[in-house]
Computed example of a mutant assay.
Amino acid sequence: METTRTVAVNGIELFLRERGEGPLVLLCHGWPELSYSWRHQIPALADAGYRVVAPDMRGFGRSSAPHPIEAYSIFDLVGDMVALVAELKETRAVIIGHDWGAPVAWHAALFRPELFTAVAGLSVPPPWRGKGRPLDLLSAAGVTNFYWQYFQTPGVAEAEFERDVTATIRGMLCGGFSDPTRSLFVPEGRGFIGRSASSLPLPSWLSETELAFFIEQYKESGFRGGLNWYRNIDRNWDLTAPWDGAQIRQPALFIAGSKDPVISDKMSGKHVAAMERVLPNLKRKLIIDGAGHWIQQEKPAEVNAALIDFLKQVT
């Protein structure tokens, strides 16, 4: 039976969903999501013999959302997971992340290999340190309207998203990153969501009840906390300089959808193709045909089977 509680870790409070007994598995969600995004994985992994813990990550849902932008660096996000393992009275864990949760998982494995003994990333490839700060490189290339850039100025994206939370969440989960034809560039004067978001039909993998849960949570929390993750992109590049060229040597798994815009652009495609350079112990690279970005919600049977097979190998 799944239980929920809130714990104090790393100077904040994290809301947790927990189920099962056995080796610890942490599930880190992305943006704009919640621990609820793992609703199909929590029971499946628990039934397979694991202690599964999925937090609302820092800034999301019922967890703390510190106001300062600087409180959302990759060190803070990984620090939350390190402190969570200690709070759970465990000494090791397998860490799994989707979307923004994937960089948290990859960096947790990179920073603390003795603690995070295996790692899986969904939708976002492992760290690939470019030649400069990501936002600086975009500007140098003449790009001014990528969504990362749109999210930088505090208050701008918040105002758009919070004006109609129902349309925002419907647009994100029913369109947005799940639509391979949708641009991740923000047209001048139109915003990120677009004007037709409220009328988008639900995909087969999402019910009105499930959508309503996300909407109600974001009406309560707002969007600032999650957007602050994006406002540390260049800062994270500076902070991780000591790990330039480092490899993640633990057993690793990568899963993504073939129609996910996050991996289908030219640069990300190169990273996916060459991720063994960062992950020398990559056990499997699973690209699920026809799936989009919300992979663990869209294709739970395939994702669960791959995760359980991986966990059986590494625990």
Rank of each mutant, 00 (worst) to 15 (best):
H67N: 12
H67I: 13
H67M: 12
P68A: 12
P68T: 11
I69V: 15
E70T: 14
E70R: 14
A71Q: 10
A71M: 08
A71D: 14
A71T: 09
A71L: 07
A71F: 08
A71I: 04
Y72M: 05
Y72N: 05
Y72D: 03
S73V: 07
I74D: 08
I74V: 15
I74P: 10
F75S: 11
D76R: 14
D76P: 11
D76H: 15
D76I: 06
D76F: 09
L77N: 13
V78H: 00
V78G: 00
V78R: 00
G79A: 03
G79Q: 07
D80I: 00
D80N: 09
D80G: 05
D80Y: 09
M81E: 11
V82H: 13
A83G: 05
A83I: 03
L84N: 13
L84E: 14
L84A: 12
V85N: 04
V85M: 05
A86I: 04
A86D: 15
A86H: 14
E87T: 09
E87H: 13
E87F: 06
E87A: 15
L88P: 06
K89D: 15
K89N: 14
K89M: 11
K89L: 11
E90R: 12
T91K: 15
T91S: 15
T91Q: 14
T91N: 15
T91V: 13
R92S: 15
R92H: 12
R92G: 12
V94K: 08
V94E: 01
I95T: 03
I95F: 02
I96T: 08
G97D: 01
G97N: 05
G97L: 06
G97V: 05
H98Q: 08
H98S: 08
H98A: 06
D99G: 02
D99Y: 02
W100K: 10
G101E: 00
G101P: 01
G101K: 02
G101I: 01
G101A: 04
G101T: 03
A102H: 02
A102W: 03
A102Q: 02
P103S: 02
P103C: 03
P103Q: 02
P103E: 04
V104L: 08
V104M: 06
A105K: 06
A105H: 06
W106C: 04
W106M: 07
H107I: 10
H107E: 09
A108K: 09
A109T: 01
L110S: 05
L110T: 07
F111V: 05
F111S: 04
F111P: 00
R112V: 13
